[in-house]
Amino acid sequence: MTSSTTTPVPSSANDLHKPRILCLHGGGVTAEVFRAQARSLIKNLPDFRLVFADGPFFCNPGPGIVPVYQDCGPFRRWLRWLPEHPEIDDESAIEEVRYSIQTCKDEDEGDGPWVGLMGFSQGAKLASSLLYEQQIHVEKEGKAETDYKFAVMLAGRSPIVSFSDYTKHPACVRPGAVSEGFHYEGESPHVLRIPTIHVHGLNDPGLHLHRKMLKQYHDPKTSTLLEWDGTHRVPIKKTDVEPICNEIYRVAREQGVKFVE
């Protein structure tokens, strides 16, 4: 089942002109829940406007969502990760994801440039995939529809997802396929060189897949790895959040992001 609209959840109304980061939630969550999970990141990124998009597909709540957020449904996903998720063809899957994101962007009241992506879990996989699509479209066509300068990947696991003919390859999972359990051994020809910040919880049961994502699909010259003593969740404590935000500011400045005075 899909939704026809998605409601953006802006960080506040007094940051309309700040550079914007599009935030993509994990599987079985919502934009509202991700905003609550990311409250410490929002607090420590005052020069950005963080905008949270809802995934297009309804599903059961993800791991750890109940009981804290059990009343925040219906819960959503961007991709299939379980075999029981309804089958969908690749073109429709791409269309639904793009529509949800574009609707969120169009409905946001801000007017600052879209400078980055930030995703958690499945949203991190999507963030990396969208950033790579931007890169390969520029390489093949000389232009892309977006101009993101960086992405922040919180617990993003391999592989990246193919969203165009340019990325149809055994190293990339199809957008309509079940993404969990996907394995590609060997060197991927699809390597993201736009800057990325990878945040890995050392007690996360999916850590080996997060490390595989970093190693196979991201250029070490443009990737930053931050590890913290946590599980599969968004960091909240100041000691864990500050290094992430410091890196976001560093990368943003290096990429020429302009902040509102």
Rank of each mutant, 00 (worst) to 15 (best):
F259S: 07
L226T: 02
C23G: 03
T6L: 06
N14F: 05
E32F: 12
H137V: 02
I197E: 02
V173I: 03
V68K: 15
P175C: 09
Y217Q: 01
G64E: 01
V9P: 03
V29M: 02
S129D: 08
T222L: 07
F34N: 11
P189T: 06
F48E: 01
L82K: 12
A124P: 11
V33C: 03
E247V: 02
A53I: 01
D240A: 05
E227L: 05
F57M: 14
S12W: 01
K258Y: 04
G156Y: 00
M118F: 10
Q122V: 11
T6S: 13
P74D: 15
A13E: 01
T7M: 06
I65Y: 01
I42V: 11
P113D: 04
P170A: 13
Y166L: 09
K168P: 01
T224K: 11
E227R: 03
T196I: 02
D204V: 00
V199C: 08
I248Y: 05
E32Y: 05
D165Y: 02
L79T: 13
V260S: 13
G201F: 05
V161L: 12
R211D: 05
V178H: 10
D165T: 05
E145M: 04
R211I: 02
D240V: 00
A31V: 03
V115L: 09
Y184D: 13
F52V: 01
V191Q: 14
H208Q: 13
A144G: 10
P159M: 12
W81Y: 11
V257L: 15
T2W: 14
L22K: 04
K43H: 13
D111Y: 00
Y166M: 07
S129C: 11
L50S: 02
T222F: 09
L117H: 10
C245I: 05
A252E: 06
L131T: 09
K43E: 15
D47T: 05
H169Q: 06
M118P: 10
N14S: 06
G256S: 07
L131G: 10
Q37P: 07
P46D: 08
L226E: 03
H137F: 05
E133T: 06
Y148L: 02
R76L: 12
E247C: 02
T167P: 06
V161E: 07
S188C: 15
K149P: 08
K237P: 03
H198Q: 00
Q135H: 10
D229N: 15
Y69V: 08
S223E: 04
K143M: 05
P159I: 06
W114M: 13
H137M: 10
L207Y: 03
A36S: 15
G116I: 09
P175S: 07
D47Q: 14
H183T: 15
